[in-house]
Amino acid sequence: MDWGFDSVTGVACIDLFCGAGGLTHGLQRAGVDVVAGVDVDPLCRHPFEVNNDAEFVLEDVGKLEPADLQTMFGSADTRILAGCAPCQPFSTYSQRYETVGTPRWGLLYHFARLVRALKPEFVAMENVPTVTKHKVYGDFVEALQNEGYQIWSDVVDCSQYGLPQGRKRTVLLASLNGPAELAKPSAETGTVRGAIGDQPSLHAGEAHADDRLHVCSSLSDLNLQRIKASKPGGTWRDWPKDLVAACHRKRSGKTYPGVYGRMEWDKPSPTLTTQFFGFGNGRFGHPEQDRAISLREGAILQGFPADYSFLPESEALQFKALGRLIGNAVPVTLGEIVGQSILASVGSGPQAIETSADAKGGCDDRALVA
């Protein structure tokens, strides 16, 4: 198949299940040349291509052939195959809907199939912590070991790397070129205040005139009363009894305090889900304004730049679709750390990249670490 890619040299990466481009954006910040992102969702094309120097390929990873990817890699000396498959099948919350045998369960097998055929020098994967409990993950790791990869994996708290969100994820790095592991945390813990404290104020249901992604969902009269009664870091247990939902008054509902909550300014946000724009869907209330966080604020908490474009100006904004793109994204900050870690293991870390840019008489923006 002719994908129309130019010849590539040096270190190159293909981002499978690329989504809106969070991993790619972070990798490119670190200095990795991401040549393509692959995803089955056409809504990903705009955010991926407009914000990143890489081509978007609309394709089902299960239908990709190794020859297709080798064409994309071109003549690269070091190839990185990154694959952050959809996490829903492995999420504790979603397992009531996603069972063994549904299409997304098998995507890691297709990832392994491509790795076995191509044998890229590096493999990177990110998913929810509970992915390690599933057979498909064990089979994936075994497939890499059988091909001679040295594997590092651990559950990573992204807030320890500066992301203003307490997002924990299993990260796996595999290498044919000797040991490779994620860099140790060195950044201060990010906070909600540091991330979104300077965003313009909004009322529930309002959109900012200069940034249509800085828009928050409306609230019913009852939920407006509830958020006014909510304390940062608190729960619905702090409310007057007449505001408590009937389901929470039952014995079975009293153990679910993690909804209808406000974030705290000087701590990381809770883990964002695909429904972070709804006050009743988790601890997604603004720390002091009587509203849920906006779509833009959610994107910033995922590490995206404040001007990252998620949809064309001509398209209508849909909370559910954009919430899914943002909530499912690999945090940009984590992508940058993964890129730095891999480049360091091949002797092409940030210092070497900066020297290379100086030698060319210019500055490669992607070599600058945010």
Rank of each mutant, 00 (worst) to 15 (best):
V100I: 13
C84L: 04
T333V: 15
F277T: 15
L64I: 14
G298A: 11
G258D: 15
G347L: 06
S201D: 13
F56Q: 04
L295G: 02
G303R: 02
C87R: 05
F48A: 02
A204K: 14
K360F: 11
P47W: 07
A329I: 02
A117P: 08
P350W: 13
T235N: 10
I353M: 08
S94E: 05
N281W: 06
F279K: 07
F277R: 14
P240Q: 11
D358W: 14
A54C: 10
V192L: 12
L107W: 02
R249N: 04
D2H: 08
R29H: 09
R291G: 02
K250P: 13
N146S: 12
A12M: 03
E65C: 08
L368I: 12
Q351R: 12
P257T: 12
D154T: 13
F111N: 03
R79P: 08
R262I: 09
L64N: 04
E55L: 13
D60E: 11
G21P: 13
D198L: 14
N223D: 11
A85S: 09
R29N: 12
E121H: 03
F17K: 00
L368N: 04
G22Y: 01
Q95W: 00
G233R: 06
Q70H: 11
S220R: 06
S348K: 14
L322W: 01
L182F: 07
E98H: 13
N223W: 00
T132F: 04
D139M: 09
G194M: 02
G233L: 01
G62S: 00
A174N: 04
K241T: 15
H25Y: 07
V171H: 02
I227H: 01
P47A: 03
F276E: 06
M72Y: 04
T170Y: 04
V192F: 11
E188G: 14
D358G: 08
A321P: 01
T189S: 13
F310M: 06
V156I: 13
P305C: 03
A180C: 15
L272I: 10
T78F: 10
E142S: 15
Q95A: 05
A30T: 05
H203D: 13
Y97E: 15
G339D: 09
L23C: 12
T235K: 06
C87H: 08
S348C: 12
F310H: 05
T71F: 13
R226W: 09
C363S: 14
C13L: 14
G62A: 02
L343H: 05
D15C: 05
A76G: 12
R169Y: 04
K231S: 13
C216F: 02
N223S: 06
H208F: 14
D139T: 09
P47L: 07
K184N: 09
A187S: 13
E264D: 04
C247T: 15
A359K: 06
A229P: 11
A36V: 08
L107N: 00
A207H: 01
G298E: 01
E55C: 06
R113E: 10
A329F: 03
G37K: 05
L69R: 07
L173G: 00
Q70K: 15
T191M: 01
F122I: 12
V50F: 11
L173Y: 07
S314A: 12
R96T: 15
L114T: 03
G4N: 05
L219P: 00
G280D: 07
Q275I: 02
A357G: 05
D157M: 02
R45Q: 12
D2F: 01
V100F: 08
V330G: 00
S314E: 08
G178Y: 15
T24V: 11
F73K: 05
A67K: 06
C87Y: 06
L176A: 13
E142W: 09
